[in-house]
């Protein structure tokens, strides 16, 4: 089970030592240049009128990033601001608001927020995107998993054209999607014939099968593709020919590679 959080929700979160003392609040979250990980936090004081602190928190010193607090071993791990801010200048502060463009050159929205994983690692799992008309006629907020992005910088987020089939509408279903996506990647690496199982989603007769992770991807996603068979493009490895499940080959066909 992955616990997901939005980076904007981290602002104001208490920084608490394992000894039980609150020492600061999170002011801003700083990402590395590729927005793949959190590199640290700038801090503000805890009082009502407290301003920014001179010290900051490098993520390497964080014990765990939790839904109620950022836990640190002791106040001694706080470091000078430059240590945190200096390392991530390229992507600093500008990921949010960056335009999202597909590798086909279509703008599909702007980055609204960054989705991070709770726990000790600080991994960025995806992005919340304010969709434009081209991605979604209703201009909803959608989520795109990080594994689907090609490149991120302060200026733009480039995603493969088929990434639009990975989008989710809310954080919980996005969590399920990320897990399904990871399972899919792992299966691909294992390179078993079962990998083709994800293409089951393209087969109308089994589309409603919840246990298949390919099905979860489609069910959790927004059907932006209209009437096109979504399953055919749900994940990158679908494009590999000859990976279909033998059972779904039309009768009289080549019989796959079974």
């Amino acid at each position: 089970m992955i616990t997901l959080m939005l980076a904007s929700d981290l602002t104001g979160r208490e920084v608490v030592t394992l000894g039980g003392d609150a020492v600061a609040r999170v002011k801003d979250t700083v990402f590395d240049a590729a927005a793949g990980r959190i590199t640290g936090f700038t801090l503000s004081g805890r009082g009502l009128l407290a301003g920014p602190l001179r010290r900051s928190l490098p993520f390497s010193a964080v014990h765990a990033l939790g839904p109620a607090a950022v836990m640190i071993p002791s106040p001694a791990v706080l470091d000078d601001r430059e240590v945190v801010l200096g390392s991530g200048t390229a992507g600093r502060g500008s990921v949010i608001g960056a335009p999202v463009i597909t590798d086909q050159g279509t703008g599909i929205g702007t980055v609204r927020d960054v989705v991070v994983e709770a726990g000790p690692r600080g991994d960025v799992l995806g992005f919340e995107i304010a969709a434009n008309d081209d991605l979604d006629a209703r201009r909803r907020m959608v989520f795109i998993p990080r594994g689907q992005t090609l490149a991120v910088s302060g200026e733009a987020l480039v995603v493969p054209a088929q990434a639009r089939h990975f989008v989710a509408e809310d954080l919980p279903s996005f969590g399920a999607q990320v897990e399904a996506f990871r399972t899919g990647v792992r299966r691909l690496q294992a390179d078993t014939p079962v990998t083709g199982g994800t293409s089951l989603a393209g087969d109308p007769s089994v589309k409603g099968n919840p246990p298949m992770n390919g099905g979860a991807l489609v069910n959790g996603g927004t059907p932006v593709g209209g009437d096109t068979p979504v399953g055919g493009r749900t994940s990158p490895h679908e494009a590999v020919p000859g990976e279909s499940v033998p059972g779904k080959t039309p009768p009289g066909g080549e019989g796959g590679h079974a």
Partner: peptide
């Protein structure tokens, strides 16, 4: 029990 401070009692816990 791990810590007892002015803000909270900190305990060992499950991930998540």
């Amino acid at each position: 029990l791990i810590g007892l401070g002015s803000y909270a009692v900190v305990v060992r816990g499950e991930r998540g």
